[in-house]
Amino acid sequence: MVGSKKNSKRRLAVRYVLATLLLLVMVYPYLYMVLNSFADWTQVDRQFIPSKFSFKSYEWLLTGGDVGIARPWMNAFFNSVFVSIASTFLMMLFGIMVAYALAKLKFRGRDTVNNFVLFHMFFPAIILLIPNFLIIQKVGLYDTYWAMIIPKAVSLWAIFMYTNFFKAVPDAFIEAAKLDGASDFKILYKIMMPMSKSITAVIFLFLLMERWTELLWDMIVVRSDNMLTLNVLLSQMFGPYGSYPGPLYAASVLLTVPIIIMFAIFGKKFKEGMQFSLK
């Protein structure tokens, strides 16, 4: 008995050590990026852990940098925030409305639409890249915010997740609300949305993160510097911005901060929603 307890404690200790090492391996790249964003420029990428720190990299971004090279950064950050929030809001709005119709309304062709959503989810998005670009160009939306927002306004994954959740809601709630004279929009707003807070947090965070990290589409539909998102501007730093590694790390930190803040705010609901989605 004593020997088995010692062995179990040893196995548990080994697991903790391995888990800690794995966590350090996963966290260190981000920690390295943060440390170098605050490091003195003489130590950026030259020491494993910098010993001198300053805010010079962030000041460079915020104040315009040398000869104005850094001026697009704050504008690019605003573009990323605006485009991500607008796209995510539309994806959530259309997702919840379409899902309610597919889950709770009876109409001809409902199964066909549902099957089309499932069928379309198997296609990689890159297949529609060229057709979407040609449409954006022909309707005159090239190099505008609309070019980055409209093609990303519908998420089939969000529709799929909401549809499965709404199907699990008893029809008795819907029927009782309709007997009281509630419309479908009121039922959706007063009943379905409050009940779906947990799954909404999951969908919101995934959609926001996906849109926030979008690069390829934003790169091909915008041309002018004042329309660039932060991801696109970061990808261009290997050219004229390559000699400023400190601001590069600082901009990368700014790129990840909104996602961390959103997860900190909606973390509890996110965990609850993940529990439901894994059932």
Rank of each mutant, 00 (worst) to 15 (best):
F160D: 05
M1S: 09
F48W: 14
A158I: 02
V117N: 08
F107H: 00
S183K: 07
A147C: 09
P131W: 01
L128M: 14
A147I: 03
K152Y: 09
L105H: 05
T163L: 13
W146H: 05
Y30A: 13
A176K: 01
K104G: 11
Y28N: 09
K167C: 02
V113W: 06
Q47I: 02
L24E: 00
M227K: 12
F206P: 02
A13Q: 06
A19S: 11
F276E: 15
R15K: 13
F82Y: 01
A158L: 03
F263E: 09
I220Q: 12
G95Q: 10
N231W: 05
I127R: 02
D218Q: 05
F119T: 10
K138R: 15
R10Q: 07
S54H: 07
I136R: 01
S183R: 05
G64L: 00
I187T: 02
I96P: 01
F263R: 02
K56Q: 11
K271H: 09
Q47V: 10
A153G: 08
Q47F: 08
F123L: 11
P245W: 14
W146D: 09
P170G: 14
S198G: 06
L233R: 10
E175V: 12
P131K: 03
L134V: 08
M1Y: 05
Q137Y: 07
L233V: 07
L134N: 01
I191S: 05
A125C: 03
K56A: 11
R108M: 11
I174R: 07
M33F: 02
T213C: 10
W73E: 06
